[in-house]
């Protein structure tokens, strides 16, 4: 069968039937080949540019469901990367879910843009004019409202140190000290 719909289809709907792990308002049935609700966010601090560069990869179909819940309207993100129709909505959603606090202050980030890579949405985000980082609190709540088992993997490269951790709905933030 096509994996594109059955992995999640099978498991999810079994889960749904018993409704243990329950996505709150999600469409009952999902069909994709990732059985696995996971996102990957890479965070790199480029000191010479005073820039914190963030790349988030999310499964497009999950993300569309989340945008539907978020905006109340069905959203179909075009496979053409340069279509910016929904960029504003994507940005607003990400603002509500992805937060950074640096040395005690909430950091404002810029939405640089997005790209489509097969079945993934890739979002590019940047925090500028950042002279140093001693402490950073990273909060990533993307898709937690949709899938109880969503895991948001975060990999950081800050001050020449590589770190990696996973955020889940019961544990939404991580503090890193340098």
């Amino acid at each position: 069968m096509s994996q594109s719909f059955f992995t999640k289809c099978k498991l999810q709907l079994l889960i749904l039937i018993t409704v243990f792990v329950m996505p709150v308002f999600m469409a009952v049935n999902k069909f994709e080949d990732h059985k696995f609700y996971v996102s990957l966010t890479q965070v790199e601090y480029v000191k010479e540019d005073q820039s914190l560069q963030i790349i988030s990869r999310l499964f497009l179909d999950d993300f569309e469901d989340a945008l539907k819940e978020f905006s109340g309207e069905a959203v179909r993100i075009s496979s053409e990367s340069d279509d910016t129709t929904h960029d504003r909505l994507i940005e607003n959603y990400l603002r509500s879910k992805l937060k950074f606090e640096i040395d005690g202050k909430k950091a404002q980030w810029n939405f640089v843009g997005k790209a489509i890579d097969n079945d993934m949405l890739v979002a590019y985000i940047e925090i500028t004019q950042l002279k140093k980082i001693k402490t950073i609190v990273i909060t990533n709540e993307i898709l937690f409202e949709m899938f109880e088992e969503q895991q948001n993997i975060v990999r950081t490269q800050i001050n020449n140190q590589k770190k990696s951790f996973i955020l889940i709905s019961q544990d939404r933030s991580k503090v890193l000290n340098f």
Binding site: I15, F20, V21, M22, V24, E148, E149
Partner: peptide, 22 residues
């Protein structure tokens, strides 16, 4: 037993339909 081999967690909220069916 198929549903029983999936791990589960308590959602913070749910729809009435799903509450009823569960």
């Amino acid at each position: 037993k198929t549903p029983l081999i999936e791990s589960s967690g308590m959602p913070p909220l749910t729809t009435p339909e799903r509450y009823a069916s569960t």
